[in-house]
């Protein structure tokens, strides 16, 4: 019995097609990394405040990204507040009137779900109630920032000092890099307007978003890096268009699906030449048509 050399029958041809497919799917998979939700460290209310809230809120120093929390317990119902701190996303989704009003007031920046437990929330509320007595450390002013360095930091051209992941891995801004950056995190083209300079600085310096916090734990950005990023964000904010990355990802998916279709089409050419089962072949040669496979 002789085996005719065919591309699909030769190990090289078959392996090559399969290798191509593997590489394709690996590339596809690589773009969609995900991070585990943060696990909460419980601690005293102040620690919780400093690690979770301070990036957007102050106590008595005016509104930042979110409202000033001085005397918040006098303004809001305690139970509502506890619920809002615990699951702000759900409250906003439910169309709660107070939440909607605040959302409009604060540039449509939603408070992220920080994944706090009920006991954490209780500790925070206790801290907020007594916050009049506690002094929070004042932030030092930032050094002047450089737009180009900021862009390089965002795009990963300049490595972050402590080895943090560059922003582009998850975020996009208008007109940067291949396909305008990642799509896991929100588009940051207009982030400067949304957060305001002080709010954005605090948000980057003291990262509280649950997804980001784990990525940057012990890899916080230096003041200079924050300043450079701020300068860059301020710059793209003035000229850029939002959501260019999602357009790019449509192209990406389109190319991917088309590529896959082309590969499968290519494989279809060899489909009929698959190795036949020997027993099927014997039966066929003897003139017995298979009931199952015909």
């Amino acid at each position: 019995m002789k085996i005719r050399p065919k591309i699909w029958n030769s190990f090289g041809g078959r392996s090559f097609v399969i290798l191509l497919l593997c590489v394709f799917f690996l590339l596809l998979g690589g773009c969609q990394t995900s991070a585990e939700p943060a696990s909460q460290a419980s601690g005293a209310g102040q620690d919780l405040f400093e690690s979770n809230c301070m990036s957007c809120h102050t106590i008595g120093a005016g509104a930042l990204v979110g409202p000033d929390l001085e005397g918040v317990l006098e303004r809001r119902d305690r139970e509502w507040l506890a619920e809002f701190i615990r699951v702000p996303d759900q409250i906003i989704l439910s169309g709660d009137p107070i939440a909607m009003e605040m959302l409009a007031e604060f540039n449509n920046v939603e408070m992220p779900n920080l994944g706090l437990s009920e006991s954490d929330v209780e500790a925070l509320l206790v801290f907020l109630e007594s916050s009049g007595d506690i002094e929070l450390v004042a932030e030092a002013p930032l050094p002047p920032g450089d737009i180009y360095r900021g862009e390089a930091i965002f795009a990963g051209g300049n490595a972050l000092e402590k080895g943090g992941t560059p922003c582009i891995a998850c975020h996009s801004v208008d007109n940067i890099g291949f396909l305008s950056g990642g799509v896991l995190g929100p588009d940051l083209t207009k982030v400067y307007t949304r957060y305001g300079e002080a709010g954005l600085a605090a948000a980057i310096k003291n990262i509280a978003f649950p997804t980001m916090r784990d990525v940057y734990v012990e890899k916080d950005l230096s003041d200079q890096e924050v300043a450079d990023l701020l300068a860059y964000f301020a710059d793209v904010d003035t000229g850029g268009k939002e959501d260019t990355a999602s357009g790019a990802s449509t192209i990406f998916w389109g190319v991917g699906l088309l590529g896959a279709a082309a590969l499968f089409g290519f494989m279809l050419l060899f489909w009929s030449q698959q190795k036949e089962s020997l027993s099927d072949r014997l039966r066929k040669d003897a003139g017995i048509t298979s009931r199952r496979h015909s």
Binding site: N9, F11, R14, S15, I18, L19, S277, S279
Partner: peptide, 18 residues
Amino acid sequence: LEGIFKLFYNPSLPDLRD
């Protein structure tokens, strides 16, 4: 070397019909 290329698809296997 061929073995490495064929790790994920070994065309010489008998199948259930065999």
